[in-house]
Amino acid sequence: MSHAPGTGIGGTPIAEEALRAARVLHPDANSMPRPARRRVITVANQKGGVGKTTSTVNLAAGLALHGVRTLVIDLDPQGNASTALDVDHRSGTPSVYELLLGETTLADAAQASTQSENLLCIPATIDLAGAEIELVSMAQREARLKEGLTREALEAIDVDYVFIDCPPSLGLLTVNALVAADEVLIPIQCEYYALEGLGQLLNNIELVQRHLNQTLTVSTILLTMYDGRTKLADQVTQEVRRHFGDVVLKTIIPRSVKVSEAPGYGQTVLGYDPGSRGAMSYVDAAREVAERGTNRELRP
């Protein structure tokens, strides 16, 4: 029996879309692999508006919904990751601020997100806004976060992945995130000036590698806000792939109204509209991240 093209049979685009949607809507049947060793990933780009927080929470949710225990540390005083994951981040709530000061433990500050039982978050409260100034006078100021993320502390909450969401700056909070991590994930938007400031970020990462964290690697670059209607988006995509090669994920995140709307409802896009293109793209990206982690030798 013959089938007209585009009817959803075999490897047609409709069939591929249906498969992607199934992975989002039926996560139990599409579990993702746990990493060979626990992965601590800092999501950084000092350029604002590149989809940094959006990528952090949606990649984390994608992994968590597919059976992988994941922690998000909100290190941005704006607290947008805390909002998107629907965790309490009112002033006085045990948060990353107290963790940096050594006044609370990881287990005491971690809250379960409403998005998944596998998804935890250390929130950011307004108190974090003054933390950079306070950190300046502290001993081991660049390693305060690392001191809170000991192997024992991470084992106590039983997580496979830690994603650290940085503020859009290269200050002490971001340095703390780079010192605490094994890997850096850099979101880059498919727009004009996409690579502006990236050299400065890479220079800072290199300084941290040289002086504070020799095992740190730029493991992942994620292209975001892709608009297929523009020639520029393709040009940026090609340029980034030419510069960074296999570090760039194959999955590209499209520009999406649903992705932008979700945080306003205290949700990731996977919770807000799981069948949307944005949700499916983030699940695909999370799967790529997970599959890269199954055979990579990383520190515990």
Rank of each mutant, 00 (worst) to 15 (best):
Q214A: 15
L100D: 08
R20D: 00
I253M: 07
V162N: 10
G10N: 02
E17Q: 08
S276L: 04
T294C: 05
T53K: 10
I122G: 01
A290H: 07
E98H: 13
L149V: 08
S260K: 14
N203F: 14
S256F: 08
G245W: 12
A81G: 03
T83G: 01
V179M: 08
I188Q: 04
T83Q: 04
V179A: 07
H211G: 14
A194S: 15
L106P: 06
Y272I: 06
G51Q: 02
R292P: 11
V136Q: 10
K231D: 14
L249D: 00
L120A: 06
A15R: 00
R69E: 03
E142D: 12
H243K: 13
Y272L: 06
T174P: 02
V50H: 05
V269D: 07
I205Q: 06
P35R: 01
R144L: 10
R242H: 15
R37D: 09
Q214E: 15
D158N: 13
Y272D: 04
A279E: 06
R39W: 11
A129V: 11
G293K: 01
A21K: 12
D227M: 06
S219M: 05
P35F: 09
G245Y: 13
L173I: 08
A4P: 11
G130F: 02
E183K: 07
A233D: 02
Q267I: 03
L85Q: 02
A36S: 05
I133A: 15
D273M: 10
A81C: 01
I41R: 03
M138Y: 01
N213A: 15
A181P: 10
L128W: 01
G92I: 02
N176Q: 04
V240R: 04
F244L: 14
I188K: 02
G197S: 14
A131E: 10
I14G: 00
D88K: 09
S256H: 05
A156N: 10
R210F: 15
A29Q: 13
S2C: 03
V87N: 01
E16C: 00
A129H: 00
L201T: 13
T251M: 00
I188C: 10
L185A: 07
G6V: 01
A44Q: 10
R34W: 07
R287T: 11
V236H: 06
R242D: 13
Y272Q: 02
A233R: 01
H211E: 15
L216K: 12
D227E: 15
N213C: 11
N118D: 12
Q115L: 03
Q115A: 11
A18L: 03
L298P: 00
R141I: 07
L75Q: 02
S116Y: 01
P13N: 07
R151D: 14
L145K: 00
R255Q: 09
S276K: 05
S116C: 04
A143D: 09
L170Y: 10
V162T: 14
R292C: 09
V257W: 08
Y193Q: 14
L65Y: 00
D108L: 08
T54A: 13
C121S: 05
L85G: 01
L63G: 03
A15F: 05
E117F: 00
D246H: 12
H3G: 09
V248T: 08
V236A: 13
R69V: 02
V247D: 11
Q189W: 03
N118F: 12
D74F: 03
M138E: 12
Y226P: 00
I205H: 05
G6F: 07
R299W: 12
A124S: 10
R34G: 09
R255Y: 06
A112D: 06
K47V: 08
L19F: 04
Q115F: 00
E17M: 02
